[in-house]
Computed example of a mutant assay.
Amino acid sequence: MNKVLQICFAFSILFYACGSDDFQFSQLPEFKEYYKKYPPRETEPTVEEKNLLHRFRPRFFLADGQEPFIDFYQDYITYGYLVGEKGRIISSNVDQTLLNKHKNDPDIVFIHTYKHSQTTPVVYGRVDYDRLKVDSQSTIELTFLTYNIVFRRSGLPAGLSPWKKSLLGWIGSVKDWHQLDHYVSVTLALNRQSEPVAATVQQHNYQTTYIFAKGIHLPPDERIKLDIALYSNEMYPHSKKRTEHRAVQFLNSESVYYLITGDKKPLLAGNDITHGTNDIEYRLEFLPPDDAFYRFQGKLGESRILPGRDGPPGADYNTIPALKPKATALVTFYRREDDMEFIELLKKWKSSVKSGPGPEILERYTKRFIEDLRSVSNN
């Protein structure tokens, strides 16, 4: 393979959603263990939970001309067909019922046909509960409100250098790297008084936690403001100005150093670009956590050549099983400005599809988060 093709192949796995022809993320044995221990709810949020989701619903901003987010079932699933083994077409009349019928079959692929219909943009809200272990004798009960938005397609970071975009253009469109992006999400952590204390947003194949009044602002109306990046759809704190954000494909000892310090930029890195000029009105909807939107094990987008370009599984497969517990993700993805300790902690645990931080490192992540949370509360 010549040098140009090697570079193209390397970038073909840049910022990809989980899943490829050779490796289906949803089929990790650890997911089966996780969902056996934490079976997803089969019901929509209660009236009280819906009220919380409505009260704290975020405000999402797009740039001028940026493609808006959509209704998953009405604008995406309605326009396409299900394919089974050996390319056999199962149905071209796909709806929520049919998709849920096949949600546990990893061999099923949904192919979207890009009709570009546009109903009112939708945000999907759900509620989870978890405990943050402070020490051997005390825990903090937390309520987690998660909001997912959906785009027909996901691209690479808009701030990639021209030569990288040119090379990648030989493979496919940098604006349409794979079909469907429903991992675009923010999770608000609420304390016992139902007060938001932190927000965790999905950014490529990792997440970032911000503590309110420290890393991100909570307006008087209690609706957090977030911008959606051009092409890649990743979430960042709102700014009316055009802003570039450092982005990497995965968090490891090399990439995290660049992400935090801006130095030693890896080859597989680029900048996301936001320009939050348009506040998007949307409809808040609710699905059971066991719905196919979250739990589909096959591919919710067509299969494409080279890893990283296939459609993703359900929205619940957004991180490795070890980091699925909401409290674990909350503290593990919290990092400060110029946070050298975070870099050192990450080096101490092997980031893989099977393992997360060990008990001692998780305890340190938790203490760091609690220390900063209390410092904000005391001011």
Rank of each mutant, 00 (worst) to 15 (best):
Q24K: 15
S355N: 13
F296H: 04
Y124L: 07
G301T: 05
H54V: 12
A213C: 12
K214W: 10
D339L: 04
I280V: 11
Q202E: 15
K164A: 03
Q193K: 15
E337G: 15
Y35D: 06
D22G: 10
D227W: 01
L230D: 02
T366F: 02
S117G: 14
E371V: 12
E195F: 10
L142P: 00
Q207W: 11
L218C: 05
T43S: 14
H54I: 12
G356Y: 00
S92D: 12
R153S: 08
T332L: 10
N271W: 13
D21W: 11
S117M: 10
K299I: 10
S239K: 13
R223I: 04
V109E: 01
R88V: 11
Q193Y: 15
K133I: 11
A189F: 01
L99V: 03
R336F: 07
I171C: 08
P157I: 01
Q6D: 14
F11V: 02
L53E: 00
S253M: 15
P45D: 06
E281F: 00
F333M: 08
V47P: 09
F369M: 04
Y79G: 06
I90M: 05
W170S: 14
N2F: 09
V127M: 03
K36T: 14
W170Y: 13
F60H: 00
L284N: 07
V256T: 06
Y34F: 14
G155Q: 01
E363M: 13
E360D: 11
D176M: 11
T113Y: 14
P359Y: 07
V123K: 00
G172T: 15
G308M: 03
H178M: 09
F25N: 06
A63R: 06
T261K: 08
G87A: 08
